[in-house]
Amino acid sequence: MAIAVVGSIHADFYVKTKRFPQPDETVIGSDFAIFPGGKGANQAVGCARLGVETYMIGAIGNDYIGSLLVENLARNGVRVDYVYKASCNSGVAFIILNEETGENMIIVSPGADNALTPEYVENSLRQLSNKVKIVLTQLETPLETVYRSIEVAKKMNMITILNPAPARELDNSIYKFIDVIVPNRVELQQLTGVEVNSIESVFKAGEKLLDHGVKAVVATLGSKGAAITTPWLRAIVKAFPVQVVDTTGAGDAFMAGLAVALLQNMDIVEAVKFANATAALKITRMGAQSMPTRSEVENLISKYDGRLLVELVKQ
């Protein structure tokens, strides 16, 4: 079985700097580079690099950048049969990377992402109904498209995973169609209204999403790992210690690892551990799509197995 990723396809324009500029300030940067990106495309490449058949459902513009983006997806093993060319520019992101800390600032211009319609996604998923088990989506395309993809996928008995990034307010009616939602701390707070400033508050916010109908909440906590909230489990899965080079795409790597692990029937704790390892390897490399292979992830898990503990908070 396969994974379908519904989402954005961008080109990322990078520049490094020793510190971020203040408003109205110009700083001197270095090492300009262009990398393929977009949360949808990043996650699709991540899934494909982990050895799973992956379909990208998205849109590019009718420009040179769009052609390069599709070629890159295909080169990384992603099926691009359901990527279409819209009559506009391709999506782009401008990324300032702080070379001292590895942190980043990002501005996104969606372009063709806004042309991805609910009807196109629904038709694509129906054509893939005999192949796809998991549908993975984010919030860089129109909300009505996101909603339709989740609803249609759930009605076709697919597993639905939502990465609610960048954070946007969601209609409460959509939660009942979501099997796993994966917010970071900021997104979790914005979705629930709960001030997220401790592990206890992470679980409290997760419980609020469960009350709305979500089956499981996996909150990413950066260097602290990830928190799992389900009706029967509260757990922290610790992160793998690595040298940070570029955090861009870390969340997308996590999403890819989680989706692949769930596709292969790992339980939620083992799936999150696999996702943590995938994200850890990504942040040791430049570029949002510098995703690891399955063997690299398994080797990292094996290296630390027995030393990284899963903390069961409450059952």
Rank of each mutant, 00 (worst) to 15 (best):
G66S: 06
P36V: 08
A44E: 09
V78R: 02
G38E: 10
F32L: 13
N72S: 11
R19I: 00
G51A: 14
A41G: 09
S30A: 15
D81Y: 06
K39P: 03
A74M: 07
Y84N: 08
G38A: 10
R49G: 05
G51S: 14
K16P: 00
T26F: 05
I65W: 06
L69Q: 07
A86G: 05
Q22V: 06
C47S: 15
V83N: 02
F35T: 01
F20Y: 06
Y84S: 10
S30N: 13
M56C: 03
R75E: 11
T54Y: 11
A33H: 13
R19P: 00
F32R: 13
C47T: 15
C47R: 09
C47D: 08
V52C: 06
G58R: 07
F20C: 04
G40H: 11
K16G: 12
Y55A: 02
G38C: 10
I34M: 15
V83S: 00
N76H: 15
V52R: 10
A33S: 15
Y55S: 01
I34W: 07
G38Y: 11
L68Q: 13
L73H: 02
I60E: 03
L50Y: 09
T17E: 02
T54P: 06
K16D: 15
G37Y: 09
T26W: 09
G61E: 09
V27Y: 04
K18A: 03
T17K: 01
G61N: 11
G46D: 13
I60N: 04
P23S: 06
Y82H: 14
A86W: 10
V70N: 04
K18H: 09
N76T: 04
A48K: 12
F35R: 13
Y82G: 00
Y84A: 03
M56L: 04
D81I: 00
N42T: 11
L69T: 00
E71W: 02
K16V: 02
Y55E: 03
Q22L: 15
T17W: 01
S67Q: 15
R79S: 07
E53C: 05
D81P: 00
I34N: 04
G61A: 05
G51I: 13
R79M: 02
D63W: 07
Y84V: 11
V83G: 01
L50W: 10
G38T: 09
Q43T: 13
Y82K: 10
T54S: 08
G58T: 07
G77P: 05
Q43I: 08
K16L: 06
Q22H: 12
I65P: 01
V45I: 15
Y84M: 10
